[in-house]
Amino acid sequence: MRILVVEDEPDLRRSLARSLADAQFAVDESGDGEDALFRALEVDYDAIVLDLMLPLKPGEAVLEGIRRAGRTTPVLLLTARDTIADRVRGLNHGADDYLTKPFVIDELIARLRALIRRAQQQPWPVVTIGSLRIDLVQRRVYRDDVEVPLTGREFGILEQLVRHRGRILTRTMLSEHLYNDASEVMSNAIDVHVAAIRRKLGAGLIETRRGQGYLIDA
């Protein structure tokens, strides 16, 4: 899942990005409001972590720009302002959640996952398909209660397909949610990962639509 982290303090931004990457998110970073709005409209992020006090364009304006463009991307405000009035204003500007600095990384990650689940209308983080049980929080897959080890990328692809069950996802869509801007992606990377997943979980799970992409049937 791909996340945009907008924070003007470089140390905090990098630290956040590293922790989110550890949690298997693909993370892009942005240090000012204008760049943040440009990226948010350019890429279909799964969620955005947004600081309010930003150079060039305040966080509220970024949020408003995203919503004005019709984007429903979940936005979590991460800010030092902690009065009730600040929270209310943030949420009224179209934010989905609010966390004050300093924060606990685990809580931030849990909230981001919850926001993404809610946005994709999947309230329960455990999905069962046939004999497979996929835990989207623990990021583990079980067949008949026996864990099948997947790599981070493999799980990322499986997660996208599960979250959009019944929809065809193109290779571009898959890689957009899987890699950040900094990643150098081989053109057949997605195909290689899908092949690996099929090897581990069985060939019937993921269908190929030639010339279009992949899907898991509903």
């Binding site: 905090l12 630290s15 922790s19 924060f103 990384i105």
Partner: peptide, 24 residues
């Protein structure tokens, strides 16, 4: 309020960095 706000950002940096370093 302003003072606590000014302290929160570096404190958040410190805390986030420590959490990252200790995570594994």
């Amino acid at each position: 309020a302003d003072a606590s706000h000014e302290l929160r950002t570096p404190l958040a940096t410190l805390s986030a960095e420590v959490q990252w370093a200790l995570a594994r």
